[in-house]
Design a protein around this nucleic acid. Sequence first.
DNA 1: CCGGGATATCTCGACATCAAGACAGCTAGA
DNA 2: TCTAGCTGTCTTGATGTCGAGATATCCCGG
Lengths: 182, 182
Amino acid sequence: MTFSRPAEDEVDRLVAAWRQERPDLDVSPLEVLSRVSRLSRHLERERRAAFAGQDMESWEFDVLTALRRAGKPYELSPGALLRATLVTSGTMTNRIDRLAAAGLVTRNPDPEDRRGVLVRLTEAGLAQVDAAFTDLLRREHELLAGLGQEERQALAGLLRTLLVPFDASAENGGAHSSSGRT
Amino acid sequence: MTFSRPAEDEVDRLVAAWRQERPDLDVSPLEVLSRVSRLSRHLERERRAAFAGQDMESWEFDVLTALRRAGKPYELSPGALLRATLVTSGTMTNRIDRLAAAGLVTRNPDPEDRRGVLVRLTEAGLAQVDAAFTDLLRREHELLAGLGQEERQALAGLLRTLLVPFDASAENGGAHSSSGRT
DNA sequence: CCGGGATATCTCGACATCAAGACAGCTAGA
DNA sequence: TCTAGCTGTCTTGATGTCGAGATATCCCGG
């Protein structure tokens, strides 16, 4: 094996195998979508390992950053949080329970809607999320080291094109207050 | 709101919020990596919904396609399967148990290594995976409708660059037999 | 003012995943 | 040949997530 072939990834091998087995099908969509799935899985694994060092779980981080982004007073409804993190309502209730038990958020009644609840970051929560976020950015910056500035922008733009249809259909939801998964 | 602004996605909003709250940080990595995570999550949700129509779970599909890709006799070890699907060994044992109970695979002793097992697709498994895969490709093709041929290739290439370091470090694993997540 | 439908959150049970460790069998070197 | 270490698979217990449904409240039209 020489040294200079443009590096192959697992998806290249996977696609080649499919072309062998099913030459009748156009498997080219996998070149993009399979890479998105696999990359996401690797990223998730990295995040998990990295957060483990600072007593922080990946799911905690997702919720806390959504609150942090919202700005003072760092307060969002469970509904806004579940739209931001793309989980179901049952999952979010459970997450809030545990974050509250850990003292990172408080759960307060919404003065304007008696069905509602407002989840607010505590001092401790704010401190933890700021530390973890700074750290995450540093690590993610390294993951992108292989790409130049222009390439990153191109990549971001292409991904946005794929993402817009999904985020648009969820648009109605709730006053598109905040949202997004870090 | 006019109609022609270049469409925004949730990540644009998320990044804008961070720039407001933490102008001291360079959050540009999120433009790429947050989109990868969110897109993957949306794709997963789509797949789940789509497969539900044909008595097929997303995790079953992942395992069956890995076997299908391997070519006749559609047989791989649990180890190869877990590397292909990026799950842990305990998860794979559990998956194989359930697939075998459903009659989609059989579990046979490896004649060359008495610790080993070979998982093989049954006729029923082969039929199911071929049907599901054809269907998946059709749907994934539609998801990419927003991009032209050249854009897809560019996107695939950029993602490969990010993926190579991960897949390379796993390279040693097991005779890089097959692998890949569909 | 009332009823019906929408919305916000929570409850509950099923289930898939992970992490760590148990164990049998392989393999290379003394 | 024996042993030490490695590999491949399975076991176990904890945990997070989903999906469906329950409940309370809101809001609009009549």
